[in-house]
């Protein structure tokens, strides 16, 4: 950074940065920083004029004008961009229905209550049973006509429906598994056993998505959740101290199911590119724009 007369901003943009800026080659996040700084710093605007030819300068002003025009991203979107997520991906993620404070807060509350129950009954079973269902629910609620208000617009956009689904699924999984991981850290007494939810979570989520392609957005996750609960109920009836799905063999089966479901999901990916007629609201539906 240059060190003379910084016009109250506390700093000056580097000459090399200004040249790169004028050529349109400066990359984010440095680009945003210089954009913002140029608004406040007259000496840097003069330095920009000296550092470049007039055509490049025009382009620079045009870009600055565009930056002034574009509204600032929301808190979540800005946070993603600070973490290195590309701005267009950050915008797609900001539109994901469940990546909201309300959903994440609800998940956190459920996990907190479950962790408390583990300390009360001295068994991690409830936590291990519940934790795999949370990512499944999150992913199920992140895409589709029921919860995504822009579903129909997104469906007919050139961006493949499966790609949008995967972008959102990865984001929801990262958030959901992260919260589950935090809850596991609160159960240090159980060692690695406290992580036995992870493979079932991946298996249930992948199976739920694969079945969604055939059974729809509501039936598929409901069926998978029901099957998981039935499996645990049957396992509990065996009387083993550690329920079979959380043993080594059970974890191996979960991993296998996750892989098979992921392969099946990939094969069915084109089904996410269009909708079945009944899944969309009918043209008899009452119109509301309010």
């Amino acid at each position: 950074m240059r060190d003379t007369g910084h016009d109250g901003t506390g700093w000056h943009a580097d000459t090399d940065d200004l040249r790169a800026y004028a050529r349109g080659e400066l990359e984010a996040p440095r680009l945003w920083s210089v954009d913002t700084h140029l608004l406040a710093c007259a000496p840097c605007r003069l330095a920009l004029a000296e550092a470049t030819d007039s055509r490049a300068l025009d382009l620079g002003w045009e870009r600055l004008d565009a930056e002034l025009d574009a509204p600032r991203p929301g808190v979540f979107e800005a946070l993603l961009m600070r973490c290195g997520v590309a701005d267009h991906t950050a915008r797609l993620l900001a539109a994901t229905p469940v990546l909201r404070a309300s959903w994440l807060g609800a998940v956190l509350l459920v996990l907190l209550m479950t962790v408390i129950s583990v300390y009360t009954v001295h068994s991690p079973s409830l936590f291990l049973a519940l934790a795999p269902l949370l990512p499944l629910a999150g992913v199920a609620l992140s895409y589709g006509p029921a919860l995504d208000p822009t579903y129909e617009m997104a469906l007919v956009a050139p961006l493949h429906g499966f790609r949008l689904l995967m972008i959102r699924t990865v984001a929801v999984l990262v958030a959901s598994l992260g919260l589950n991981g935090l809850a596991s850290l609160a159960l240090p007494g159980y060692g690695l056993r406290a992580l036995a939810w992870l493979l079932p979570a991946l298996a249930l989520t992948a199976t739920g998505l694969a079945l969604t392609a055939r059974l729809g957005q509501v039936t598929a996750p409901a069926l998978v959740s029901g099957a998981w609960i039935a499996l645990l109920a049957a396992a509990a009836a065996t009387g083993h101290k550690t329920l079979p799905p959380f043993t080594g063999v059970g974890q191996g089966v979960a991993a296998l199911v996750a892989v098979i479901a992921a392969v099946l999901l990939h094969r069915l990916r084109d089904r996410f590119d269009t909708a079945s007629a009944p899944s969309l609201p009918t043209d008899l539906a009452h119109r509301s724009v309010a």
Partner: peptide, 29 residues
């Protein structure tokens, strides 16, 4: 569509920008 849905917390610019991303406008400027 008949019932165009919106993300109500988006600004008009951000919403149209979101649809532009879905329409493969990758370059920000």
């Amino acid at each position: 569509p008949q019932n165009p849905g919106f993300h109500p917390d988006f600004t008009a610019f951000a919403f149209v920008d979101y649809v532009a991303i879905l329409k493969e406008f990758a370059d920000r400027s």
